Simulated assay, not measured.
Amino acid sequence: MFLGTHTPKLDDKGRLTLPAKFRDALAGGLMVTKGQDHCLYVFPRAEFEEMAKKVAAAPFTNEAVRAYQRYLFAGTDEQRPDGQGRIAIAPELRRYAALTKECVVIGAITRLEIWDSQAWQSYLDEHEDSYSQGQEEALPGIF
Rank of each mutant, 00 (worst) to 15 (best):
A88N: 11
D82S: 06
G75T: 01
C103T: 15
E137T: 14
F48P: 02
A88Y: 09
G35D: 07
Q118H: 13
I89N: 05
R94I: 09
K54E: 14
M31P: 01
A74D: 05
M51S: 07
R95T: 15
R111K: 15
A20K: 12
M51F: 15
S117R: 14
A57W: 00
A57V: 04
A67C: 01
V55Y: 07
P81R: 10
G107L: 10
L16K: 09
A88I: 10
V104Y: 01
G28M: 03
Y96D: 08
G14Q: 01
G134D: 08
A97S: 09
E128D: 12
A67W: 06
Q79M: 08
P59S: 05
E113C: 10
A88L: 14
L112P: 06
R94F: 07
R23K: 09
P59L: 04
V65E: 04
A98K: 15
L99A: 04
A74S: 13
L40T: 06
A52G: 03
A98Q: 15
M51D: 04
K53Y: 00
Y41L: 13
S122F: 01
E78F: 11
A58F: 02
H127C: 00
H127N: 15
G14Y: 01
R15C: 03
E47M: 07
E113M: 11
R15S: 06
C103D: 06
G35I: 06
W120Y: 15
D24F: 02
I109L: 15
Y68C: 03
L26Q: 05
E102V: 01
R95P: 00
Y68Q: 11
T76Q: 11
D82W: 10
R70T: 10
W120F: 15
H38L: 13
F22H: 13
S132I: 11
A98D: 15
Q135N: 09
L72F: 13
R66Y: 01
V105S: 11
N62E: 13
T17Y: 03
F73W: 08
P44G: 02
L18T: 05
P19C: 05
A97E: 08
K34T: 04
W120L: 05
S117G: 04
E136V: 12
D77Y: 09
Q79L: 11
E47S: 12
F22Q: 03
A97C: 10
D37H: 11
A20L: 02
S117T: 03
G28F: 06
G134I: 10
K101F: 03
R86Y: 12
A56E: 12
R80Q: 12
Y68I: 11
Y68V: 12
L18Y: 05
Q69Y: 03
E113K: 12
Q121E: 14
G85F: 07
C39A: 09
G134C: 09
A56W: 00
Y71W: 15
S117Q: 14
L18V: 05
Q118N: 13
R23V: 02
F60T: 05
E113A: 10
Y71G: 05
T100I: 02
K53A: 11
L26G: 03
R111E: 07
E102P: 02
L72N: 06
A27G: 06
Q118D: 13
M51W: 14
L30M: 11
E136G: 09
A27V: 00
E49P: 02
A98I: 03
L16E: 08
L99I: 07
V105W: 11
Q118T: 12
Y131M: 15
P19N: 07
D77W: 06
H38P: 03
P44S: 04
S117L: 08
P59W: 01
P81E: 09
